[in-house]
Amino acid sequence: MLTVGRTPDGRDVRQISLRGGGLTATVLTYGATLQSLRCDGHSHSLILGSPDFSAYLADMHHFGAIVGPVANRVAGGRFELDGITYRLDRNENAQNTLHGGSAGFHTRVWEVVDHGPAHCTLTITQADGLGGFPGDLQVSARYSLEDDHALRIDISGQAKAVALFNPAFHGYWNLDGSRDLSGHRLKIAANSYLPLDANLIPAGSPQPVQDTPFDYRFPRPPDPALDHNFCVAPRRGSLREVAQVTTSGHRLALETTEPGLQVYAAGQTTSGDWPGHDGIPYGCNAGIALEPQLWPNAPNRPDFPSARIEAGQQIVQTSRFRFALGAG
């Protein structure tokens, strides 16, 4: 492992290198962040990121990170659990809590507890009250490069007390190294999605995708304004394929255990002044985030799949990103 930087409070950040299954990857201990992922025979990274760690302290703070303890948005930065009202860090426009708030998983330096040629496991403890969230969680994230050109991500949480647990991997994909997603096509195995209000909070119940701009049951270009949850299952279950991204002979297939897939086409996201891989600055729509998770604002929606985790319970979220790349 290499030391590649230091956080503002003086913690060393290390870089882990992995190789296996025709893939190479680098992972940062800051945010358990997948910094790069490359396929043999292709020079470009399949995931957006930067060789400069400082970028992850600035505009690229969610790029490739594990976010939580509750990914996506919690409306009003508050929820009720067992009769107690919890008030969270409202880090999005002083209204909502986004991706665990300003002390979320993506801001933490994780400990490496296992590291082999093609895998690594990192852990953190989510203390009771951090960011306003209840409970005491032991969290781990394991990255594995598997033989079928697949990246597997297992995120687990074990609770000492009743808590909330809905993490997500927040990587942005671009399969051909182009400046935007104009040549990409998206397919999602979902018959329904969640409409949003003006604050990007789910409004009402799931609605059919048929005859709407959110029908991706057949491949088509992703709408640059996408930032929506697709209801791919009613509850967490076994691994199944939920989405594909294709372009110019390249394909990414996503399998997950989760009932929701947040799709964000990075319409409001750039790398700012920070260079990405190969010195390329990322503009809007430079990559697409496919975030397996529960449905947004679940702590305030008893009709949604629950983010509750009981004392002594362990929950594991698994996703596999499988690649088939054509000639370089």
Rank of each mutant, 00 (worst) to 15 (best):
S50M: 06
S50Y: 08
D52N: 14
F53L: 15
F53C: 10
S54P: 00
S54D: 15
A55M: 06
A55V: 08
Y56R: 10
Y56D: 12
L57E: 14
D59M: 07
H61R: 15
F63Q: 05
G64V: 11
V67E: 01
G68E: 00
G68Y: 01
P69E: 00
P69S: 05
V70Y: 10
A71I: 02
A71W: 02
N72P: 00
N72W: 03
R73F: 07
V74K: 05
V74A: 03
G77L: 06
G77K: 09
R78M: 13
R78S: 14
F79Q: 00
F79N: 03
F79K: 06
E80M: 01
E80C: 10
E80P: 00
D82C: 07
G83N: 04
I84F: 09
Y86T: 10
R90H: 05
R90E: 12
R90N: 12
R90V: 14
R90L: 07
N91Q: 10
E92W: 13
E92D: 13
E92C: 02
E92P: 00
E92H: 12
N93I: 02
N93E: 14
N93K: 13
Q95D: 10
T97L: 10
T97I: 03
L98D: 03
H99L: 01
G100P: 03
G100Q: 02
S102N: 11
S102M: 06
S102V: 04
G104P: 09
G104S: 01
F105N: 05
H106G: 11
W110L: 05
W110Y: 08
W110G: 06
W110R: 08
V113I: 15
V113R: 11
D114P: 05
G116S: 15
G116N: 07
A118S: 15
A118T: 11
H119K: 08
T121M: 13
T121W: 08
T123N: 03
I124W: 03
G129Y: 03
L130C: 06
L130I: 10
L130A: 11
L130F: 01
G131S: 04
G132V: 04
G132P: 08
F133Q: 00
P134W: 03
P134F: 02
P134K: 01
G135D: 09
G135E: 04
D136R: 05
V139E: 03
V139H: 07
S140N: 04
S140E: 07
A141Y: 06
A141P: 01
R142K: 13
R142W: 02
S144V: 08
L145V: 08
D147C: 09
D148E: 14
H149P: 00
H149I: 00
A150N: 09
A150T: 15
L151I: 07
L151E: 12
R152L: 09
R152D: 10
I153H: 09
S156I: 00
G157W: 04
G157I: 05
A159H: 05
K160H: 12
K160L: 11
L164H: 07
F165P: 08
P167D: 05
F169S: 14
F169T: 12
F169A: 14
F169R: 12
F169V: 10
H170M: 06
G171H: 13
G171C: 15
